[in-house]
Design a protein around this nucleic acid. Structure first.
Lengths: 229, 229
DNA sequence: CAAGCTACTGTCAGATTCTGGCAGTAGCCA
DNA sequence: TGGCTACTGCCAGAATCTGACAGTAGCTTG
C-alpha cells in the first residue's frame, strides 16, 4: 500500500473510534510501526487534519471530515458555490456561518479563471431576514441525533397556543423559516413546527420508541411528491 | 519537492495551458525527466483526473477541476449539501443536473454516520416549478464569458414588449426565475431581465466596450446592500 | 508515402525516500 | 511514585522513485 493511501486509511480509522485511541492500536490496525504512525500523524496534521494527541490518552479526530481529492466539472462547482451562497443568506446563523467559511475554503483553492466565472453567477436574494431565532436550534439538532423527545409551547397559525411533546427526526427549511419535523404525541401524527413559533423549548433525555431513520422514511411516504435525497 | 506536491503542480501547469502541451514541455516546467512525467500523468489519471494525451499533439486537461483534499466541519458539509439540494430543485435544468451529480460525488465519500445526519436535514421546498425555459441559457453564459452583446425582445411586467441590445455580465437567481444582469443600451443603465420574459434571443460576436469585472463591480455598487462573494 | 513529432511501455542502476527499532524527553493519570 | 502515552532524533536496511535508454505505435504535415 502506498503511503498516500495509508494516510487516508488512517483518517478512516480515527473516524471509526469515537474515544481516544492509542498510537500503538492505530499502528497495529494499519500494520505499521509506531514510529511510522507518528510520522503519518504529523503529515496529516501538516495538511490541516484536526487530529489531537494527548499524552496518557491517545488520539482523537475532532469532528469534521476531510474530503479526499474530488473531481468536479465547472458546472458542479458552480452549483455547489451557488447553493452555499444561498445557505449563507439564510436566517439560520449557525448554518449561514458554516456556509460562509466553506465558501472561503473552496474559493482558496479555485484557479483564478474559474473564480471569475463564478463571480458572474450572482445570487439576487435579499439579505437575511432579521428574525432573531427565538429558540436554540442546537438543542433540536441534539435531540434529533439522540432520538430524544422534545417539549415546547406552540402557537399555531391562528394564534392558539398548545403544549406539545414530540419526537423530532428532521430539521427542514420552508421558505425563510426553519421547521422541526416530528411525530406529535398529542395529534398522533406527523407535524411540522415553525421554529419561530416555538417557545419554552425543553430538551429531555427520554428516548422515543422509534428509530429516526424509520420515522423519516414513513414521513417521506406521506408527502405528496416524495423526492429522494 | 515531494512527489505528491509535484502532482498537484502538474495539474496547475495543465490548467494554465489551454492548448495541448507536449510532455517534454511539462517535464521541463517541473524540472523532471520525461519518463517521470509519464509516470505522474498515469498516477493522476488513476486518481480520476481527466487528462487526455494524444500522440502528435500533447496533453490537455478536460475542463473541470480537481479539488485537493479539503477539511470541512460537520456544519460546513451540511451547508454545502443543503445548498446543493436547493440548487438541484431549481428550474435551471443544467445547474440542477450538475448539483445532483455533485451531491452524488460527495455522498460517495462521506462516512455513514455523517450521511445519516444529513438525511435529517430536509429541504421542504416544493418540486421544481415546471416553467420550461423559453431561451437557451447556455447562449447567455457564453455571451457573458466572451463579453459579447446580446439582442432580444423583452416583455416587461406590464406586458409591453421592447427590443433590447444589452451587455450581459451576470446570470442570477431571483425567487424562482433566472435573471440576466446587464447594461441596457436603450436605457443607458443597469437592468435585470427575467429569462422567462425574453424571446427571440440572439447572440452576437460583437464585444462590448467594457470589462465584465468592471461592470459587475459598478453594478454591485448601485445595489442597496452590497455583499461580497 | 515518408519524416517528424508525440504518447506510451519495459528495463535497470543509482538516488531518494520510507520504515522500523532504539534511546531519550515530557505530559497525563492513578 | 509508577505506568501509560505522545513525541523527537538517529541510523541502517527496505522500499520506492527517478532518469536514461531502447523500442512500439499513432497523428500530422509535406
Amino acid at each position: 500500500m502506498s503511503r498516500s493511501e495509508r494516510l487516508l486509511d488512517l483518517i478512516q480509522s480515527l473516524r471509526r473510534h469515537r474515544r481516544p485511541v492509542s498510537g500503538q492500536a492505530l499502528a497495529d490496525e494499519l500494520g505499521i510501526s509506531i514510529r511510522t504512525l507518528y510520522r503519518d500523524i504529523a503529515t496529516l496534521q501538516g495538511q490541516g487534519a484536526p487530529i489531537e494527541g494527548e499524552a496518557g490518552l491517545g488520539y482523537v479526530l475532532k469532528p469534521g471530515f476531510m474530503l479526499p481529492p474530488l473531481m468536479f466539472s465547472d458546472e458542479e462547482i458552480e452549483a455547489i458555490v451557488l447553493g452555499s451562497r444561498w445557505v449563507a443568506k439564510q436566517p439560520d446563523q449557525r448554518l449561514s456561518a458554516a456556509a460562509t467559511s466553506a465558501l472561503a475554503k473552496i474559493a482558496a483553492v479555485l484557479p483564478d479563471d474559474l473564480r471569475e466565472d463564478l463571480d458572474a453567477s450572482a445570487l439576487l436574494v435579499g439579505p437575511p431576514v432579521g428574525a432573531a431565532e427565538s429558540i436554540d436550534l442546537g438543542l433540536v439538532r441534539q435531540a434529533i441525533r439522540k432520538e430524544c423527545k422534545l417539549g415546547f409551547l406552540y402557537s399555531d397559525a391562528g394564534g392558539a397556543a398548545s403544549e406539545r411533546v414530540v419526537w423530532p427526526f428532521a430539521l427542514g427549511f420552508f421558505d425563510k423559516v426553519r421547521v422541526v419535523v416530528a411525530w406529535c404525541e398529542m395529534r398522533q401524527d406527523f407535524r411540522h413546527f415553525r421554529s419561530d413559533r416555538i417557545v419554552e423549548l425543553q430538551a429531555t433525555d427520554t428516548r422515543y420508541p422509534r428509530r429516526r431513520q424509520a420515522l423519516l422514511k414513513e414521513w417521506r411516504a406521506t408527502l405528496d411528491k416524495p423526492r429522494g435525497s
